[in-house]
Simulated scan of single mutants.
Amino acid sequence: MSAYQFNGSAVAHDEEGYLVDIAEWSPELALLIAKSENIEMAPEHWEVVNFLRSYYEEYQVAPAVRVLVKEMTKKYGKEKGDQKYLYSLFPYGPAKQACKIAGLPKPTGCV
C-alpha cells in the first residue's frame, strides 16, 4: 500500500490515491493531495471539497457526478452546479478527483 508523506508521517492511500482512513484527512493534507493531482486549490475548489465533505457526513456516501451536479445546483445555483464548471476545476472528473482531495472514498459508479 502506498502513502502520502505528510508532517513526518505516512498517510496510507489505495492504489488510486484515495485515503484508507478518511479520519486522517485535514485541509493541509488536501493541499498535498491536490498538488499530486496538479491542482492549485482556489476558493472555488474548496467550495466543492467542503460541499462533498458535508454531503458525505450527512449521507455516508460520496456522490457520483450526476448527483454532485444536481446537489451543487440546489445549494449554489445553476452556474456552480454546471458540469462544465466543475470539470474546469477538476479536469479528471469532478466527483472522482474532488472526492480524492476531500479525503473521501471513490464515488460509487466511477470507473
Rank of each mutant, 00 (worst) to 15 (best):
I39H: 02
A34N: 01
H13P: 00
H45C: 03
P63A: 05
R66I: 14
D21V: 15
A12E: 05
Y87C: 14
E16D: 13
C99Q: 00
D82I: 05
E71C: 04
M41Y: 14
K74S: 10
I22F: 12
C99R: 02
C99E: 00
Y76P: 09
A95N: 15
E24V: 01
P43H: 01
Q60C: 07
P91S: 08
E40Y: 08
G77E: 06
H13C: 06
N50T: 08
A23M: 07
E79I: 09
G93D: 07
E79S: 04
K35S: 00
A95W: 06
E58H: 06
S9R: 11
Y55H: 03
L29W: 02
Y85M: 07
A64T: 07
P94Y: 09
E44A: 12
G103N: 01
Y85F: 15
W46S: 11
V67D: 12
V61A: 07
E16Y: 14
S36Q: 09
K74E: 15
N38W: 12
A12S: 05
S26T: 11
P107T: 04
K75T: 13
G17N: 05
N7P: 05
G17C: 10
W46D: 04
V67A: 09
P27Y: 08
S88F: 07
E47I: 12
E47V: 12
E79W: 09
L86E: 06
L32Y: 11
G109L: 13
W25T: 06
P27I: 03
S2M: 13
L68I: 06
S2L: 11
A42S: 15
L86N: 10
E15K: 15
R66Y: 11
Y87N: 15
Y56E: 00
F90G: 04
T73C: 10
D21P: 02
L104C: 12
V49F: 00
S2G: 10
E37M: 14
I22R: 10
P63L: 01
L19G: 02
D82G: 03
S88T: 12
K80C: 09
V111Y: 15
G8Q: 14
W46A: 01
A98D: 00
M1S: 10
V61C: 05
W25C: 05
L52K: 05
Y87T: 13
Q97D: 08
I101C: 02
W46G: 07
V11N: 04
K84L: 10
K78T: 09
S2Y: 14
V111L: 15
G8D: 14
K100F: 07
E57V: 01
L104S: 04
E15T: 14
V20P: 01
M41I: 13
G77F: 02
A30W: 00
S54E: 12
Y4I: 07
A23T: 05
C99M: 04
